[in-house]
């Protein structure tokens, strides 16, 4: 069980601890949870982001960092361990979710694992809609893999507020160890930071011991400055993770957006001492892209953030590409998709 060890966090811990398998199986984190801070509007309004410079950094990064051979293999394995293996479709069924969970337990064929000479790994989590939590929790029993649920009227977040809060509570009750909430984009677009802060605070409280990831829907926030301001406000309000997108916006995770969000995380850590996690979601489907993201995290935030308690990929098709790359590394032959179990 994660305990909130920081002073000031107690007021958030109003939910009775709900014992359920999910939370007990969270990757064992040493980090105290981010308890949040008071809303610091001076900080929010002082944000300066130079878009061209951010884009330049993002664009040149893949040329500055390269991992090869056994390093590449290790980094790709790490990437798998950081995936929130996700299905968020209207046609999800129990059978579909069970298949996904089986894949999360064994994302890589035993043969490849053996050839690489590594311990078996699992994905970071499985991410589903509320209705599928129970199925997923059951399917993952004993695996240590937490179930994450998208919530609060995902993806638009425009259902009645009390229902959004209730949805969180239901999902936690159903066994979700992680709740991916969506923020009200309108609060960002109208500069209503207090409303955003209050909303996030309430969501965080509703999560209790479940970890909360704040989905900013960065593709709908208009500017990078808004992305950073929203990131800061959500962290101040106690988000454990900040996450780019629902995967349903027309633009999802990008390197420039990731860069400004993780720099916000870095500043937040510098000021408060609390590490907040980061989850880019949507649009990351290639092994090479995953490695670029990991180098970005390593160089800007530090290696500590390359663990599942502080970083996740929200992705559905990324795993398949990584499997092919790893088989190529293991055998020297280019692989084929049909050689790997679908999730």
């Amino acid at each position: 069980m994660n305990s909130e060890t920081q002073p000031g966090s107690a007021n958030l811990n109003t939910q009775a601890d709900v014992a359920h398998e999910g939370t007990t199986q969270l990757p064992q984190v040493q980090e105290p949870r981010n308890p949040g801070t008071a809303l610091d509007l001076d900080w929010v309004s002082s944000v300066q982001i130079n878009t061209s410079a951010i884009e330049r950094r993002a664009k040149t990064l893949p040329g500055r960092r390269s991992v090869k051979k056994e390093y590449q293999a290790a980094w790709l394995l790490k990437a798998i361990s950081l995936i929130d293996l996700t299905t968020l479709s209207g046609d999800d069924t129990k059978g579909r979710v069970r298949r996904l969970c089986a894949k999360a337990r064994q994302p890589l064929s035993a043969e490849i694992v053996k050839r690489l000479g590594v311990e078996p790994i699992t994905t970071g989590a499985v991410c589903v809609y509320h209705e599928m939590i129970e199925t997923a929790v059951k399917a993952l029993k004993g695996s240590g893999i937490p179930v994450a649920a998208v919530s609060t009227g995902f993806p638009a977040g425009l259902s009645p507020f009390h229902l959004r809060v209730a949805e969180i509570e239901e999902s936690v009750k159903a066994g979700a160890a992680e709740i991916d909430i969506v923020i009200s984009r309108r609060h960002v677009l109208t500069g209503n930071w207090q409303a955003l802060y209050d909303e996030m605070r309430t969501f965080r409280q509703a999560c209790g011991n479940a970890h909360v990831k704040a989905i900013l829907a960065t593709g709908e926030l208009g500017t990078l400055r808004n992305v950073v301001r929203a990131s800061l406000v959500c962290m101040m309000a106690g988000a454990d993770f900040i996450k780019t997108s629902t995967g349903k916006e027309s633009v999802n995770a990008t390197l420039p957006v990731s860069l400004v969000m993780i720099r916000a995380i870095r500043d937040y850590f510098d000021r408060t001492g609390f590490r907040v996690g980061y989850k880019p979601a949507g649009g990351i489907s290639k092994a090479k892209d995953a490695v670029t993201y990991l180098t970005l995290i390593k160089d800007e935030l530090g290696t500590r953030w390359l663990q599942p308690d502080l970083f996740r990929f929200g992705a559905s098709s990324l795993l398949g590409d990584i499997e092919r790359q790893l088989e190529h590394f293991a055998t020297g032959r280019y692989s084929a998709a049909h050689r790997h179990a679908i999730g």
Partner: peptide, 12 residues
């Protein structure tokens, strides 16, 4: 080993 790199996440 790959396992070591997996833990350290060093650049090679």
């Amino acid at each position: 080993s790959i396992q070591d790199i997996f833990e350290s996440m060093d650049y090679g």
